[in-house]
Simulated assay, not measured.
Amino acid sequence: MARFEQIGTASIPGKATQLRLLRRNDEFSIRIAGSSGELMNSRLHGSEDALATLACERLADHAAPRVLIGGLGMGFTLAAALSSLGADAEVVVAELVPEVEAWNRGPLGEAAGYPLRDPRAKIHIGDVAELIRSSQQSWDAILLDVDNGPEGLTRKENDWLYTSAGIAAAQAAMTPEGVLAYWSAGQDPAFTERLRRAGLSVDPVTVRAHRPGKGARHVIWLAW
């Protein structure tokens, strides 16, 4: 059986740890250096697809919708969003690690069909929190697949997105009829309650990591 081979590394800004990109035939894996666990695998992207499709289906009546995605990853959420939206849409992806963009424009891009080549897609290298803080009623949907969800794994600074202050900033950045969507590796009742306390209607949807209906159970919170 073929083994994974490392084809790229990237430093996480502000951290001493690195991301590793590995390839085995047509399968890709992103891991944290020094850890045996995976952050992402190109064969397990059902929940990343669902993050986009569940949110974007709510934008059917929006003219020229603008969508912000926090976290490029392997490009599957971006690809699903573009597939769900019309020709007049704009999708901006905020990615903190520049090498992740390079990977998606290079060999990794084939996994999701090179969505960054779509003219509707734009990339912002930087923290999605900065874009959210600087936006006012700018986005019809904000999709956050950052770190591991409310329980951060790689970067403590990401936790702000899931605090009451982060939720309030996302609400301010969203258009009045917009939707927020959050990906998480697992359930978090405290986060569900935090969204409700912010005055949002909340639908926590359980989805599977592998389609159809297989793999780990992940959670997508839809809030509006």
Rank of each mutant, 00 (worst) to 15 (best):
Q137Y: 08
G109H: 11
L21S: 01
Y114T: 04
T53R: 14
Y182E: 11
S11T: 13
A121H: 09
E38V: 08
Y162T: 04
H218Q: 12
I132W: 00
A190E: 14
D118F: 01
W160V: 08
G186L: 03
H124E: 09
A64N: 11
R117H: 15
S134C: 14
L108R: 10
P150F: 00
D188V: 07
S138I: 03
R133Y: 00
Q137E: 13
Y114M: 07
A121R: 13
S83R: 15
T9A: 01
W103N: 03
L39H: 13
M174P: 04
A173F: 08
I220E: 10
Q137T: 03
A63E: 14
P212N: 10
T206Q: 13
G109L: 11
L143G: 07
E110V: 12
S35Q: 10
E48H: 01
L131R: 09
V67D: 02
Y114H: 15
L59S: 05
Q171Y: 02
G34F: 06
L82P: 02
R105I: 02
D203C: 05
D188E: 02
R117C: 12
S42Q: 02
Y182W: 15
A129N: 07
D26I: 11
A50V: 07
H210M: 13
R208V: 08
S29N: 09
A50G: 11
Q171S: 05
A2E: 03
K122W: 09
R211L: 14
A141T: 00
F191L: 06
S42V: 03
V97Q: 09
S135Y: 04
H210L: 13
P98L: 10
T163H: 12
D61L: 08
D61F: 09
P119I: 08
L131T: 08
C56T: 12
A165G: 09
A185Y: 15
S164W: 03
V205Y: 10
G46Q: 06
V67Y: 00
F4I: 00
F191D: 00
V100F: 09
T77W: 08
G199R: 06
L54I: 02
K15Y: 01
F4N: 04
G46I: 02
P212V: 11
N158S: 07
V179H: 02
W139G: 03
I123G: 06
G46F: 04
D127L: 08
V202L: 08
I142R: 05
P176L: 10
S164D: 15
R66A: 13
D61K: 07
M40T: 01
N148S: 07
E27K: 03
D188I: 10
D49C: 14
L51T: 12
V93D: 08
E110A: 14
